[in-house]
């Protein structure tokens, strides 16, 4: 009997080891996701707990009144521009830190600090720095006589076209500050993996530093760069913290993002079905880069 038990354990060991984590994911991630899709076909609200089946009306309503199109535009703009700015910046920093000069470990640690800072802390400090009345940036600009009255970086509603407005641009700036460390660390690791022989051969052939960077470094870190950018584009599209903690979508929805809208629709307006609908739309959009990500990393993970 004991031997039988032991063989049963050893035979299915792979499953026993995997089961707890897999079960958690199925129960707490997969099931609620499916449930969100189901909820999006009902009109469940605070005072209508059971809800009635209304088919696709949540979806058609959102697209008819156009409010969601604006949020999708905002979210795409926010995530794409954040990455477009953070990528070359972190590429440049990691290139600097890849040089064999003293202090690279020190600077790498220093630059990683924003990444481990609590988002609540980061957002409130930035909010303070970018405020109208107490901002050191405004103070500096006023002292230098570059501006006549303080700018409300996160509250300006006078200038802007769609997602291109002052609060959005400064929100992206704050976001770049918090996401560049992750990208830098990935790029740096990829760069350190390149054999020095290649660079030496290039030096012998008379290639300059710029040439080496674009003809050797960039192509060789491309696989890592591709994965990092895909992952970041998904994470930034899904991002809740920066959007909620910094501006909460305001002023006038100018910086409102889809994730923030799901939260406010669900937990401030108590329109659960409509919140679920937005989250499903988010998932459908993010599915495109997700499939690309799974296809590229999957090969490696499966072997």
């Amino acid at each position: 009997m004991k031997a039988f038990k032991a063989s049963l354990w050893d035979r299915y060991a792979a499953y026993w080891f995997l089961l707890p984590a897999l079960l958690c994911i199925l129960v707490f991630i997969v099931y609620p996701s499916v449930r969100s899709v189901w909820m999006s076909f009902f009109n469940i609200e605070l005072l209508n707990n059971a809800g009635q089946f209304i088919g696709f009306r949540n979806y058609t309503d959102f697209f008819q009144n156009g409010s969601l199109i604006k949020l999708i535009g905002n979210t795409l703009f926010f995530s794409i521009v954040s990455i477009a700015v953070a990528c070359p910046f972190s590429l440049y920093i990691s290139h600097l830190l890849n040089k064999p000069y003293w202090g690279r470990g020190f600077f790498r640690t220093l630059f990683l600090i924003p990444w481990v800072t609590p988002p609540v802390v980061a957002a409130s400090v930035w909010k303070f720095i970018l405020s109208e009345n107490f901002s050191p940036i405004n103070g500096l600009l006023l002292q230098l006589h570059l501006i006549k009255k303080p700018i409300s970086f996160l509250g300006n509603i006078e200038w802007g076209f769609g997602p291109v407005n002052l609060p959005m641009l400064f929100m992206i700036l704050v976001n770049v500050w918090s996401i560049f460390p992750f990208m830098m660390v990935m790029f740096l690791a990829a760069m350190q993996n390149i054999s020095s022989d290649i660079y030496e051969a290039a030096t012998v052939d008379g290639a300059g530093n710029k040439r080496k960077f674009f003809a050797i470094t960039i192509p060789l870190i491309m696989p890592v760069m591709g994965i990092t950018l895909l992952l970041q584009s998904i994470w930034q599209f899904n991002d809740f913290n920066t959007g909620f903690l910094l501006t909460r979508g305001g002023p006038l929805d100018m910086t409102n993002l889809l994730a923030v809208k799901v939260y406010s629709e669900g937990f401030l307006n108590f329109k659960y079905s409509s919140a679920a609908t937005i989250s499903v739309i988010m998932f459908l959009i993010v599915l495109i880069p997700s499939i690309a990500y799974i296809k590229t990393t999957g090969k490696e993970q499966f072997d």
Binding site: S279, I294, F302
Partner: peptide, 25 residues
Amino acid sequence: LRKLSIMAFLTSQLVPGTLTIIPFY
């Protein structure tokens, strides 16, 4: 089920937290 399980982990890493937030609550 190995491949399928890895897929489940990979996908969960990408799912927006907000997709599950209402039902999870």
